[in-house]
Design a protein around this nucleic acid. Structure first.
Lengths: 366, 366
DNA sequence: TTGTAGGCGTTATCAC
DNA sequence: GTGATAACGCCTACAA
């Protein structure tokens, strides 16, 4: 479409009105209009109100493209996530969008689909769109980081969240998975468990490595031995949780507590226990990880670790905005570590006084 | 930040390179560069490859802001959703982003938080950002639609999805809730249920009104009477489902089938049945609506209606792109109605041959 | 306090 | 086939 011709008549009602249109209408210069609209200091109050009134009348919308082009700074932030599904990423994105919008920014969202090449293309697209900063949770297949070097060498603020690159040289917001595992396992110990098993996830992923470490820390702290038969490595699926539980229940001396690195896996174990007539939490107490939505609807409800999705989103935006404002000056990279929260529910609580009444699940309204 | 001064030296490595920089380097005009990069017809092949090589060397990124400003058309689409949580909206957004990105568009996401005023602000922001089109799922509190009239009067393509305004004058993609209810209730009839109850949602919301209507249709079709004591109006929560079930089980003649307008509510009913020793599906068959993630992990798994979230996203983008391409020409608004899918699971399947083995739940990896 | 003018990076139009 | 030039809408020295 060819650009609209400049006309001397007032703008058609269905066409966006520019500052030039307002200027012509009032017989003043564009500068005046610009100052009135941007609340500049040197502008007569009556002039200003006249401009504002006309702007409202014509429903003037500033063209942020033009503004960004001129100023070299847009009001757009970019997010790259592996995907927008499940519980975790949508919640973080929710937190990000809320915080960004509060600060006057809009957010462009991209999915890498766990594909490094796609992630690279996402970065290019965001650079092309002239975003003011980028937030990334790494794709699982990303092994080289040049595309991010390029971002930083342009002086464009960059913050990783949840899945970050290692090191002190990046800005990142992550959850302390190890601490989560530690407090969860400690809780099982406090409930009287002495033989605590662990459903571990793929150890090449940091989150699962750290969760296993936290579990080990808690055992050591309590002076308990680590028994290899009590650690089962899984892909964190429900079925693998059930399978592990079957193996454990077949032992001469089965565990009396289980810390699972994920909720689905914990669920599988719990269901297998029920099938075999083993009582949860009395015979075996179980805790999960992630606070999946279903953990409050099972019977018993599942003790788990909340990952502070919303806070993670907020913290990510806060850090990014700091970087944007400090743009130009030197800024020492920061890693923000969020503290996980243990949500104690019925699957691990052995005392007589259980949590009173199930937490009402959110309405299934869409 | 003041715009960078035009310099005669090659660009610093950390600064974006423009077409002018390339032109200077090659001693040709910007026009030539532009043509080479945009694959224009009148350009010498050797010139073209020279330009492309240099562009790659300097890692040239087109400035889409400038391009959009000049052309009056950006490569950005806007989405407005009530929120990015639960199962439904994230999945639709996932579908939208995937389809948009395939077509070379990026997506700005906004949340209205079920607030009409916020929704209005979202529209303004997207207009300001000069998006090429807008996709909206209405906030629950939206009662006036002027902000959308403004969008359309600007000639900006607009498509509603899921929560749309009524009428033939809008472009929309919605699910046929009534049909979903119909096939779900029919399925219960086929399973031999003769007294089918309904957990209904708030009737001022179209989706629940339509689901109730589908239920009534199925009863009429089967020549069964509508009994008011078998329809309970709820807010679709788990607890209300349980409460309704309690009332039904206290009847002299309890229902032998239940069609719930939502999965959480169905779950509550199912759990209450279990507590009272009533067998599902043999004593009472139950079906839900929405295909929430938990419906495959309960025991028994819950029969439900899939809402085609991904397809909805794709269809929305397809329709919007059509509108964008038809921009200027007259385009008769279209309403696309997606057909829901009945997922038959154990909570309603009375025959001996149940679904073999629980469907493996997706790994709880984040 | 207000106006003038140039430029942000790209592309369409015209001339060569 | 290539080049010069003028916009797109906004912002900001600088001048008045």
């Amino acid at each position: 479409m060819a650009p609209r011709k400049k006309s001397e008549t007032p703008p058609a009602p269905n066409t966006p009105v520019s500052m030039a249109d307002l200027a012509r209408e009032l017989g003043v210069s564009m500068t005046t209009i610009s100052r009135a609209l941007s609340d500049h200091y040197s502008i007569g109050p009556e002039m200003k109100s006249k401009v504002l009134k006309l702007a409202k009348k014509y429903n003037y919308q500033p063209n942020r493209l033009a503004s960004a082009l001129r100023k070299g700074k847009s009001k757009l932030l970019g997010i790259i996530v592996p995907y927008i599904e499940g519980r975790f990423f949508p919640s973080v994105v929710h937190g990000i969008e809320t915080a960004a919008s509060k600060a006057g920014y809009n957010v462009i969202i991209c999915q890498s689909n766990e594909d490094a090449a796609q992630e690279r293309r996402n970065v290019e697209a965001l650079l092309s769109a002239q975003v003011a900063g980028i937030m990334v949770s790494l794709s699982r297949t990303t092994t080289s980081y040049q595309h991010f070097d390029k971002v930083q060498s342009r002086g464009l603020p960059l913050v990783f969240f949840d899945r970050s690159v290692e090191g002190e040289n990046v800005n990142a917001v992550v959850l302390n998975d190890q601490e989560g595992a530690l407090i969860s396992t400690r809780h099982l110990l406090q409930q009287g468990c002495r033989r605590i098993a662990h459903l571990a996830g793929p150890q090449h992923l940091n989150i699962y490595k750290n969760r296993r470490q936290g579990y080990l820390d808690a055992l050591r702290e309590a002076g308990l031995p680590v028994e290899e038969e009590l650690i089962v490595y899984t892909d964190m699926t429900q079925d693998e949780g059930a399978a592990a539980m079957r193996r454990w229940l077949a032992l001469p001396n089965p565990p009396d507590g289980i810390f699972s690195g994920g909720d689905y896996c914990a669920l599988g174990a719990m269901q297998e226990a029920a099938r075999q007539g083993v009582r949860v939490p009395d015979d075996v107490a179980i805790t999960g990880f992630s606070n999946e939505a279903f953990t409050v609807i099972t019977e018993p409800t599942i003790t788990t670790i909340d990952q502070r999705c919303e806070e993670m989103g907020q913290a990510t935006v806060r850090l990014l905005l700091e970087l944007i404002e400090a743009s130009g000056t030197t800024f020492t990279p920061r890693q923000i570590v969020l503290r996980p929260e243990l949500l104690i529910r019925d699957s691990s609580l052995r005392e007589a006084r259980k949590t009173t009444g199930r937490r009402a699940a959110k309405a299934a309204v869409r």
